[in-house]
């Protein structure tokens, strides 16, 4: 079939319109979040606060158990990141074992991940809104509460993963509180709400350490996969 120039132009038109560990220190400069960061303890699963159990709904539990059983069989078809390098989405990208950079600017906060050159953007100049089609990373809106960057993410694609096994739906909503514990330590408290999968909201806290300034290597996940390397950090089956 040949390309349809009329259709192409129509689509074109449509689209064209369309820092001393452990001791909290006050940090007054919001751009103090700027810099290179890396997760303090690499992990494949979300770190639940106080090791609390995940409050699954029956549907959520069923999907989780199905994913776990498939992983134990070595069948990762349920995981688009591990099976084909698709974006890990949120909040899983925040578990990457590779560094990422934060650029705090007036209207956009950018997170530039080394992993597959992924970019996460936080809109600082608008109010959250709904849209018909969700995305893997969702739409993110940010605001400052003192020195804490609060990010509200919604409009997610259904049937994705929060980490290596935990399922999510298009009802997912994330609220993050990013705050410097000290000049070289960044905490991201992620509050996860998804009434299809969980009976209540729950929190995970991920900690990052500041890294030396560096230009990232060009990571191409599909090339790593083709070379027989793991697209995403190796998993350990959950007990």
């Amino acid at each position: 079939m040949r390309g349809n120039p009329g259709l192409c132009l129509g689509v074109a038109l449509l689209l064209s319109v369309c820092a001393g560990a452990g001791v909290a220190q006050p940090v007054n400069d919001r751009t103090a979040l700027d810099g290179v960061w890396k997760i303090a303890q690499p992990r494949v699963s979300l770190p639940l606060e106080n090791e609390a159990p995940i409050p699954f709904t029956p549907v959520g539990r069923e999907q989780y158990e199905r994913n776990k059983a498939a992983a134990l069989r070595g069948d990762y078809g349920f995981d688009p990141t591990l099976s084909r390098c698709s974006s890990p989405g949120m909040p899983r990208i925040m578990l990457s074992d590779r560094p990422f950079k934060i650029f705090v600017r007036a209207n956009v906060v950018s997170m530039m991940f080394e992993w597959n050159r992924l970019l996460r953007q936080v809109n600082m100049g608008a109010s959250p809104s709904e849209r018909v089609w969700g995305t893997v990373m969702g739409d993110a809106w940010g605001r400052w509460e003192g020195d804490t960057l609060v990010i509200d993410s919604r409009n997610f694609k259904p049937e994705r993963l929060l980490d290596d096994l935990i399922p999510s739906s298009e009802q997912l909503r994330l609220v993050e509180h990013l705050r410097l514990a000290d000049a070289d330590t960044l905490d991201d408290r992620i509050t996860i709400t998804d009434p299809d999968m969980f009976t209540r909201s729950w929190d995970a806290v991920v900690t990052y350490k500041r890294q030396p300034k560096q230009a990232f290597a060009e990571d191409v996940c599909l090339d790593r996969k083709a070379a027989g390397q793991a697209p995403w950090p190796g998993r350990l089956a959950r007990p």
Partner: peptide, 12 residues
């Protein structure tokens, strides 16, 4: 603010 681009989901 960019639209999402996830070509690996197809090409992978």
């Amino acid at each position: 603010i960019f639209a999402e681009y996830d070509c690996e989901d197809d090409v992978g």
